[in-house]
Computed example of a mutant assay.
Amino acid sequence: MKASLKPLASQVVVITGATSGIGLTTARMAAAEGAALVLAARDGAALRQLAAELEAGGADVLTVATDVGVRTEVEQLGQAAIARFGRIDTWVNNAGISMFGRHEEVSEEDGQRLFQTNFWGVVHGSLEALRQMRDRGGALINLGSELSDCAVPLQGMYAASKHAVKGFTDSLRMEIERDRIPISVTLIKPAAIDTMFTAHARNYLPHEPQVPPPVYAPELVARAILHAASHRRRDIYVGGASRLMSLGNFHLPRLFDRLAEATMFRLQQSDRPALPDRRDALHASGGNALQQRSGLQQQPVCERSPYTSLSLRAGPLMTALLWGGAAYAAYAACTAVAGTRARSAS
């Protein structure tokens, strides 16, 4: 049985990680479209502030302070949504965190906490969404990353968690479809996004971390999430760079390894020394609540993605053509770089 997804204005939408970045942008955009919202994050004060803002604009909002890494708290989130609205139409597993550092430097405690949020938070949310939407149907939307399909040095634990999210999401989708449960399951794979991502990340580097270009606006991800709330989609790549990374890593893995080794140690570190008293959000909610963007990008932020916009509107044939064009572009770019490096070495 295929999921029959409602117009967004008629939906009750659960969003985790709702007080900054992509989650905050999605909550504001969904409220503007008329959706009723159930918003979750660890910071209860920030949630109350956000609820007041959205309710002033006429939105119907419930907030539930939730650590997605704790299954009982996620279950309470689902139960609170049902108690208030009687149903859930879309569940967005957005909460996530990163850390920058070499594997041999990252503590086991920090690695486990990252997985507790990024992976187990998605597992907890997905299973609660399945339990609450099994009969009525709806949309389950999980936030992966371009690093769901490839990897980079210095963010190895984050990449590993996003690979795990992809494996879990894809296998859960198969089980749901096999049982003919009317739930659409979508994995969103953003490229680098201008959010509080680096400010909230645990840092082991000698310099403050940064995301490598190209960097896209969080509004692009929010639009993709809300599109998936009312349209059945298996995967959505946000930013042409995300699709190029995925294709390039699949078709030319060793070349992309070499490119990452040559560039990503430099591109993921700014020229600012690491702050000795920086406050991250790995183990507890950090600062910068209700901030969508970092304001720290030294390069322009891409406010549009022609690839993503067209892929959301395109049918299967057009999407296949887009992917073929992207694959060719990735191949041409990589072979050009490889040729330049070979000439330089000779």
Rank of each mutant, 00 (worst) to 15 (best):
T169Q: 03
T169N: 03
D170T: 12
R173V: 05
R173H: 08
M174S: 13
M174G: 15
E175N: 10
I176F: 14
E177F: 06
R178C: 06
I181C: 00
I183E: 05
S184H: 05
T186H: 09
T186K: 08
L187N: 08
L187H: 07
L187P: 06
I188D: 08
I188V: 15
P190N: 06
P190W: 10
A191G: 10
A191M: 09
I193A: 03
I193S: 08
T195K: 02
T195C: 04
T195N: 00
F197V: 10
F197M: 11
T198N: 10
T198V: 14
T198S: 06
H200A: 12
H200R: 14
A201C: 04
R202A: 13
R202I: 09
N203V: 09
L205G: 07
P206D: 01
H207Q: 15
E208T: 02
E208Y: 02
Q210N: 05
V211M: 14
P212N: 12
P213C: 02
P214A: 08
V215T: 06
V215P: 05
V215S: 02
Y216S: 07
Y216F: 14
Y216G: 07
A217I: 03
A217R: 06
A217Q: 09
A217E: 04
P218H: 04
E219F: 05
E219R: 12
L220D: 11
V221L: 08
R223W: 10
R223I: 13
R223G: 13
R223A: 15
A224S: 15
A224C: 14
A224K: 14
A224V: 12
I225N: 04
I225W: 02
A228G: 01
A229D: 04
A229E: 02
S230M: 07
R232V: 14
R233K: 06
D235S: 08
I236H: 02
I236L: 03
Y237K: 02
V238I: 14
G239W: 11
G239P: 12
G240Y: 03
G240D: 08
A241W: 13
R243T: 10
R243M: 15
L244F: 01
L244C: 00
L244H: 01
M245F: 13
S246Y: 09
L247E: 07
N249S: 15
F250R: 15
F250S: 13
L252Q: 11
L252I: 01
L252P: 04
L252K: 08
P253E: 10
P253L: 05
R254N: 10
R254P: 00
F256W: 09
D257M: 06
D257P: 02
R258G: 06
A260E: 05
A260S: 12
A260L: 00
E261D: 14
A262R: 13
A262P: 00
T263C: 00
T263P: 00
M264T: 04
F265V: 10
F265A: 11
R266S: 14
R266P: 00
L267T: 15
S270G: 09
S270R: 09
S270I: 10
D271H: 12
R272G: 01
P273D: 10
A274Q: 05
A274P: 04
D277V: 06
R278A: 15
R278K: 13
D280V: 11
D280E: 09
A281R: 12
L282F: 13
L282Y: 14
H283I: 13
